[in-house]
């Protein structure tokens, strides 16, 4: 099931890709496709989490800083303290889940605005990460590594990056959760009309909190992927702005910041489009300083087009409704 909106996004991706390919045929080279898939995987996993929070009617701004703090903690546990990698990995994911839980409880129990809670998270985690390493860059250290873990999170099978495979698996699980499960239905209801959800006996606090928890967990997982991608963590810049990539992808993919709207397919396509645009900037020799400007412009145009489509659909819907009402009399 793919909506017209998502189909339009797919067409846009194909058009941008075709244009890029026409100007620079390296766009479709195996190396380039592989690199893009790797980045789609890296950015896609946590974008799904952020998308979930956005559908609940909230926002999550702190994932970029989470990558820094969870990255240095993971490296410290694994490289400096010599903890076995499954434990270090579990610690990163577990901490991510915990931070998500704290955000969720602050939003639902303390009644704080999601923007404020996660903005504070963004500042706190970034500062904590810099303090943790005294602002120094942390790396694996000489000879410290684990071949299996590195293969698992940073290698490829049959040319397909494992990050991308992980992304597809998580997206499939997320699609089931969002579009087929009881939880998914409740999440959309809470996102669209929390009061009606509450009056229908839905435990709205739990539904919302769980969205932040899942988002935190996916951010924890991603933090490990990113450490193996960059091989070191500079806490002042590691993961900077990544939360905005995720929000941008979700919005491009049809999530409304008012909540209650969006789909897994949409978010996936949003992530792909962002990466294709990045790639376009690189391959077409556009100064990389314009990177953000290109992204911003495309999102703006996308949202404008979406607005127009929605308006037309609403009009058609209203007419259909009026017709039905009269037909029934």
């Amino acid at each position: 099931m793919i909506s017209k909106k998502e189909l339009a996004l797919l067409v846009l991706i194909l058009v941008v890709g075709a244009v890029t390919f026409a100007i620079n045929p390296r766009f479709l080279s195996a190396v380039n496709i592989g690199n893009m898939a790797n980045l789609v995987g890296l950015f896609g996993i946590f974008a799904l989490g952020v998308g979930l929070v956005i559908i609940s009617g909230g926002i999550e701004l702190s994932v970029g800083s989470m990558f820094a703090i969870l990255g240095v903690i993971f490296l410290d546990l694994f490289a400096n303290l010599g903890l076995p990698w499954p434990l270090a990995l579990a610690a990163a994911v577990g901490l991510g889940l915990t931070l998500g839980l704290i955000h969720g409880l602050l939003v639902t129990k303390a009644g704080l605005q999601p923007f404020v809670v996660t903005l504070c998270g963004l500042l706190i985690y970034r500062g904590a990460a810099r303090f943790y390493t005294s602002d120094a860059t942390m790396g694996f250290g000489y000879g410290v590594d684990d071949a299996f873990l590195r293969w698992l999170v940073a290698d490829r099978s049959f040319g397909v990056p494992h990050t991308f495979i992980a992304f597809v698996i998580i997206a499939a699980a997320m699609a089931v959760l969002l579009h087929g499960s009881v939880y998914g239905r409740h999440l959309y209801a809470v996102g669209k009309n929390e009061e009606a959800a509450r009056y229908s006996g839905i435990r709205t606090g739990r539904v919302t909190t769980l969205a932040y928890v899942i988002c935190g967990g996916l951010a924890g997982l991603t933090s490990v992927f990113i450490v193996f991608y960059t091989n070191s963590v500079s806490p002042s810049s590691h993961g900077n702005f990544y939360e905005l990539y995720a929000i941008a992808a979700a919005v491009l993919g049809g999530c409304s910041l008012r909540g209650g709207e969006g789909s897994v397919i949409g978010i996936m396509l949003g992530v792909v489009l962002l990466q294709v645009l990045q790639n376009l900037v690189n391959l077409l020799g556009i100064p990389s300083s314009l990177n953000f400007a290109v992204m911003g412009s495309v999102i703006l145009l996308g949202v404008l087009a979406d607005q127009e489509i929605t308006r037309r659909r609403k009009r058609a819907l209203a007419q259909a409704g009026a017709l039905a009402a009269r037909g029934g009399k």
Binding site: Y188, A189, K192, N193, A196, A197, S200, G260
Partner: peptide, 12 residues
């Protein structure tokens, strides 16, 4: 406000 999610279908 309190009973319906207006954008959802009758079924939902």
């Amino acid at each position: 406000r309190s009973a319906l999610v207006l954008d959802m279908t009758i079924r939902e």
